[in-house]
Design a protein around this nucleic acid. Structure first.
Lengths: 236, 236
DNA sequence: GAATGTGAACTGTTTCACAGCC
DNA sequence: GGCTGTGAAACAGTTCACATTC
């Protein structure tokens, strides 16, 4: 079983590798990958060793083969089906992100309890009634769902999702959810993140060149070619 | 120096503790905190020990004292000043989040390069020209900034922020940023997160009750009782 | 010489197990 | 008995150091 951190880095590697392909680069050294992804060369080599990818003593790693190898692990098929619950401001920002970007994901359905939204197509995705999660996801099965409803509704939404067969949840609401053990869950709590970084900002300010590198580097990342960030719905 | 993970959990504890205060609860046991925050009782006790908070053998921990103790560490004053760069869909969602919620944060300024937005007040915050980051943040100093611009612009924005004295960045764009060591940085790459969870969703579906704990719990709480599903959660 | 591949050491985090307290 | 506090063990993740290959 590949750990969460390795999976994260594979995604980051792939992003940079795609970049290299566009530039017609055929090979890459571990230290180049490292440099671009904000890691050490050793860690890169460990990761590649871990997934059983073999390089070449002279030329480093074949870009195309490595991309294929990572693809085999992540199995992205033609599009990862997702469902979004909660079409508020954040939910809409996410919908927009999908409608413009990455064909890598496929938004199957969205849900909300606002009568104004139910039935409408918002950012390219039809919005259904919250109560319809189970029936609709039974017809259009989805393994992964995104929760962007208010904290008070989150647990009940999660329960429905689990009943609908969802096995992975990205939870943007600031509450801890109780889900069965087989369900993977990732928490993105903006308030928590901002406060955490603010804490270390303050410390950095005081300590200056302190004991250790401070970087929190949650996800590390890389020039994802096609993916423009996404706050900006303007320019590029 | 308190580690990132402990800081995260302190924020989570505080959230539940505030809840307890509302319900007039005066004391709390480590296993209750653990239960609610998706952790183990040992880990809670370790954290409290780590920050030097002492409980009572009979009654557990005093809620009010613990809140005060955590507040002293996080120093939230009357409001953490923040700046937002990139008023696209995500940026607006974040602005709305602040204007409705937590007086804990104070959005000092927002920036964008869209002439349609510059000069306007959006979601309660005046939007300035991207080029004005340094002068405006020099007058209204901010230690922490949020980047929600497209990937192509992210590095140049980060450079300006650093020049303006920012020591902490939350980066929503999917690129690795080069910043001086004293700058704390946290990456939130939606695409990466969705794909990661999708990966483990698939694995969970197949493996069922497999080897190891499942929850990815990027930022915090994890509903966990015991060993469950997949390879390790650690760090983030 | 400049890469990769990898055992071994190290660091950070979590859990175990149990002493001490009420 | 059920709680806290904590040394010690276990574990995961990272880095070091170096043998190996071209």
């Amino acid at each position: 079983m590949i750990s969460k951190k390795v999976i994260e880095r594979l995604i980051i590697y792939r992003s940079f590798l795609n970049h290299l392909v566009e530039n017609k680069r055929e090979n890459v050294f571990s230290h180049q990958l490292a440099e671009h992804c904000g890691l050490t060369a050793t860690r890169v080599r460990r990761d590649l060793m871990h997934i059983g990818f073999i390089g070449n003593y002279k030329a480093g790693y074949r870009v195309d083969l490595l991309i294929a190898h990572i693809r085999d692990i992540l199995e992205p098929r033609e599009g990862i089906p997702l469902a979004l619950i909660g079409v508020g401001n954040l939910g809409r920002a996410i919908l927009t992100y999908f409608s413009r970007q990455n064909p890598q994901f496929r938004l199957v359905a969205s849900f909300d309890n606002d009568p104004q939204k139910i039935g409408r197509v918002i950012a390219g995705c039809r919005c259904h009634d919250l109560d319809q999660i189970v029936p609709i996801l039974s017809e259009n099965p989805v393994q992964t769902a995104i929760i962007t409803v208010p904290a008070t509704a989150a647990q009940s939404v999660a329960d429905q999702l689990v009943r609908a067969g969802v096995t992975g949840i990205v939870n943007f609401s600031p509450v801890s959810l109780k889900v069965p053990q087989h369900v993977a869950i990732e928490y993105i709590d903006f308030g928590l993140i901002f406060e955490k970084v603010a804490y270390f900002s303050r410390k950095s300010g005081l300590t200056q060149a302190s004991d250790k590198p401070i970087h929190t580097a949650l996800n590390g990342a890389v020039p994802r070619t096609e993916a423009s960030g996404f706050g900006g719905d303007h320019e590029n």
